[in-house]
Amino acid sequence: MLQRMGRRQGALPFHHARRDRRRGCQLCAAAELGTGALALGGERAAIGPHGVVAGAALAFLVGDTTGRSVDVVRRAAGLSSNSLEASINRSLTEPGVAGRDRVEATLVIYAALRLFAGRLLAMQLGPRLGTKLSPDALAAWHDWISGAMKALAWGQPR
C-alpha cells in the first residue's frame, strides 16, 4: 500500500516550473529523490532527502555552504516527509492493508525524521552554535551522520 501511495505521489509537486527542472534544479532533484523513491524503497526513501539536509546544514555550520542552499534541500526533505505522512494516514484509515508492526516502524521513522529536521534547523539558526566546535570535529560529525543516513536510505555499509 505504501508503495502504491508513493507511486501515486511520484509526480513532482507544484512548486517548480518545468523549465527549471530541465536545468537540473537541486530542489527538483531532491524532490524526485524523496517522492519518487517512495515507490521503490518505501519508508527508507524518505530518509535520503533528510540525509542531504543533514550534510548541507552541517556544512553550513562550518561555512561551506549558504543558508539558501540548505533551505532548498530542506524544502525537498519536507515534501518527502509529507509523502510519508500521507502514506501513514492511508495505512491507518485502511486497516489490514499494512501490518501493525510495519505501521509502527514507519511511525517511528517519521517521528525521528521530524525531530531530526527540527534539531538541524535549531543548530542552523542558533547564534554561532557551529563555531563553538572545532571544524575538524564538525567535519567528523558531518561525515558520520551523512554516511549513516545514506546507509539507512540505500543500504550502503556504514
Binding site: E43, D101, T106, V108, L133, M149, L152
Partner: peptide, 30 residues
C-alpha cells in the same frame, strides 16, 4: 545559561539518537 559548545554537542548527540531509532525501525521493517 547553557554553554554553546555543550548545546552543540547535545544537538549532535540528539541527531545520533534519532539515527539509532531509525536504524532500529528499518531493522524491524526488514
Amino acid at each position: 545559561m547553557p554553554r554553546p559548545a555543550a548545546v552543540a554537542i547535545d544537538s549532535l548527540v540528539r541527531l545520533a539518537r534519532q539515527l539509532e531509532l531509525m536504524a532500529d525501525a528499518i531493522a524491524r521493517l526488514g
